[in-house]
C-alpha cells in the first residue's frame, strides 16, 4: 500500500470518528438541558464541551462567551476551527477522495452524502432542528462503519482505518472523562447526589454507554463510570478496549509488512500504562494527571506511526 494512501486512510478514519464524537457530545448536552431543569434553573453548561474538544484557547480568542449559540457554531460550523464538524467532514472527504479507489464505493458515497448534508446545514441562516442533525450524523457514521465492516478486505487499509478510529476514540473518551470530572469538582456537594447521577448519566450517553453500563453496574457513581470508561475490557469505547484493539491492528499491519517499526514500542508503552493500574489507584493519584499522561503517550504514538509508515525517505 502506498504510504500516502495509508496516511489518507488513517486521517479519513480519525476525522470521521472525531466529528462523530462532537455530534454525540453536543446532542447529549441538549438532552441534559431538558432533563436537569430545576436543579440549575434550566441553565446548561456549554463550556465543558469546549474543554472536551481541547480547543478552548482558540475558542476564547474569538468568542466572548461559551453560550449555546457560540459553542454550537464553533464546534459544528466554524470553518476556521480545524476540528469543527464541518472542517472534519471536509478533511475526511478530501482524504476519502484521494483513496476512493481503495475503499468500498458505497463508503465513499456515504462520506460524500454526509459532506453535502453537513455543508447544506452549515449554509442555513437558522438551524431549526439540530437534534435531528446530530443524530443523522451518527447514523451516517454508523453506516460507513457498517460498510467497511461488511465489505472491506482485512488488509492494511482495514487495519489503518481501525487503528486510527480506535486511537481517536480513546482520546475522546479520555477527554470527556477529564472534563466531566473537572466540571464537577467545584461542587463537591453534588457528588453522588441525584444531580450527579444525571451528569454522569449524560457522560455515559454521550459515548452510547448508558444501557451497557446499567447491565454491568446498575447504579451510577463516578468511580464506577470512570472504571467503565477506562478499564472495562468489553465496552468498545473504553480506553482499555480501544488501546488493546488498536494494538492488535498495529500488530497485524506489522505482520503484513514484515518489518518491525518504532511505532510498536510506543504502542506497548501505551498498553502497559493502561493495564498496569486499576481505576481506584488512577482516581487516587488523580484522573486529570492520568489523562494528561495518556494524551502525551498518544501523541508520541501518533508521531511514531507517521514516521514508521507515512514518511518514507529515499
Amino acid at each position: 500500500m502506498l504510504s500516502r494512501v495509508a496516511n489518507s486512510i488513517y486521517w479519513l478514519s480519525r476525522y470521521l470518528e472525531r466529528l462523530d464524537s462532537i455530534a454525540r457530545f453536543i446532542n447529549v448536552n441538549y438532552f441534559l438541558m431538558l432533563e436537569k431543569g430545576e436543579a440549575t434553573d434550566g441553565k446548561t453548561q456549554w463550556d465543558p464541551l469546549i474543554y472536551a474538544s481541547g480547543d478552548h484557547k482558540d475558542f476564547f480568542q474569538r468568542y466572548k462567551k461559551a453560550d449555546e449559540k457560540n459553542v454550537i457554531k464553533f464546534l459544528s460550523f466554524d470553518k476556521t476551527n480545524p476540528n469543527s464538524i464541518l472542517s472534519c467532514v471536509e478533511a475526511a472527504r478530501e482524504n476519502a477522495r484521494t483513496v476512493r479507489e481503495i475503499i468500498p464505493t458505497e463508503q465513499w458515497q456515504t462520506i460524500n452524502d454526509l459532506y453535502h448534508f453537513i455543508k447544506d446545514e452549515s449554509k442555513k441562516k437558522k438551524h431549526s432542528n439540530l437534534q435531528d442533525f446530530y443524530k443523522k450524523i451518527k447514523d451516517y457514521n454508523n453506516q460507513t462503519i457498517g460498510l467497511t465492516l461488511n465489505s472491506q478486505l482485512r488488509n492494511q487499509a482495514w487495519h489503518f482505518l481501525r487503528l486510527a478510529k480506535l486511537l481517536e476514540r480513546a482520546d475522546k473518551t479520555a477527554r470527556l472523562l477529564d472534563v466531566k470530572y473537572f466540571s464537577l469538582l467545584p461542587n463537591l456537594s453534588y457528588v453522588d447526589s441525584p444531580y450527579d447521577a444525571i451528569e454522569w448519566g449524560a457522560v455515559l450517553k454521550s459515548v452510547n454507554a448508558f444501557q451497557m453500563y446499567r447491565q454491568t453496574y446498575h447504579r451510577v457513581s463516578y468511580e464506577n463510570v470512570s472504571d467503565f470508561l477506562i478499564n472495562n475490557q468489553y465496552f468498545p469505547r473504553s480506553i482499555c478496549y480501544c488501546v488493546s484493539e488498536a494494538s492488535k491492528s498495529l500488530a497485524e499491519i506489522i505482520s503484513i509488512i514484515g518489518i518491525n517499526v518504532e511505532a510498536s514500542k510506543y504502542m506497548d508503552d501505551l498498553e502497559t500504562m493502561i493495564k498496569s493500574k486499576d481505576t481506584k489507584s488512577i482516581l487516587r493519584e488523580g484522573l486529570h494527571e492520568f489523562v494528561d499522561a495518556f494524551q502525551v503517550k498518544l501523541n508520541e504514538l501518533d508521531e511514531a506511526i507517521y514516521n514508521s509508515f507515512f514518511a518514507l525517505k529515499i
Binding site: M1, L2, S3, F310, L312
Partner: peptide, 14 residues
C-alpha cells in the same frame, strides 16, 4: 521515485 533506473512506489513496506 526512480532508483537505479527503476521506477519505484513508496509503500508502507518500502
Amino acid at each position: 521515485t526512480v532508483i537505479n533506473d527503476e521506477v519505484m512506489l513508496r509503500t508502507t513496506k518500502g
